[in-house]
Computed example of a mutant assay.
Amino acid sequence: MVGKILRSRLSWYGFPVLGLVIGIWATLRFSLLAPDPPANPENLCDIFREHPVWYDYARESQERWGTPIATQMAFVYYESSFRSHAQPPRRRLWGLIPWNRPTTAYGYAQALDPAWNEYLQANEGKWYVVRTDMEYALDFVGWYNHLTHKHAGVALYNPRHLYLAYHEGRGGYLRGTYKRKPSVTALAQRVQNRAFRYDNQLQSCRQEFQCWRWYQFWPFCG
Rank of each mutant, 00 (worst) to 15 (best):
residue 121 Q to P: 00
residue 136 Y to L: 08
residue 114 P to L: 09
residue 103 T to L: 10
residue 106 Y to W: 15
residue 123 N to P: 02
residue 129 V to N: 07
residue 97 I to G: 07
residue 98 P to C: 07
residue 111 A to W: 10
residue 95 G to E: 03
residue 100 N to Q: 11
residue 102 P to M: 04
residue 111 A to T: 05
residue 120 L to H: 00
residue 105 A to K: 00
residue 100 N to W: 00
residue 108 Y to W: 11
residue 136 Y to H: 15
residue 130 V to F: 10
residue 136 Y to A: 11
residue 112 L to V: 11
residue 124 E to M: 06
residue 101 R to L: 01
residue 133 D to R: 08
residue 141 V to M: 06
residue 115 A to L: 13
residue 96 L to W: 14
residue 115 A to P: 10
residue 133 D to H: 09
residue 139 D to K: 05
residue 133 D to W: 08
residue 104 T to K: 01
residue 131 R to S: 03
residue 103 T to K: 04
residue 96 L to G: 07
residue 101 R to G: 04
residue 143 W to G: 10
residue 115 A to N: 14
residue 107 G to M: 10
residue 124 E to Y: 14
residue 114 P to Y: 04
residue 135 E to P: 02
residue 121 Q to K: 07
residue 121 Q to G: 04
residue 122 A to F: 00
residue 137 A to Y: 06
residue 142 G to L: 02
residue 95 G to F: 01
residue 131 R to A: 02
residue 104 T to V: 06
residue 115 A to D: 12
residue 118 E to N: 14
residue 95 G to W: 01
residue 107 G to N: 08
residue 131 R to H: 09
residue 102 P to L: 01
residue 137 A to V: 07
residue 97 I to F: 15
residue 138 L to G: 05
residue 143 W to N: 05
residue 141 V to N: 04
residue 106 Y to I: 08
residue 99 W to K: 07
residue 140 F to S: 03
residue 112 L to P: 04
residue 126 K to W: 08
residue 110 Q to S: 03
residue 111 A to D: 06
residue 117 N to W: 03
residue 96 L to E: 12
residue 130 V to E: 13
residue 121 Q to L: 11
residue 112 L to M: 14
residue 143 W to A: 13
residue 92 R to K: 15
residue 132 T to D: 12
residue 105 A to W: 02
residue 110 Q to K: 04
residue 109 A to H: 06
residue 127 W to D: 13
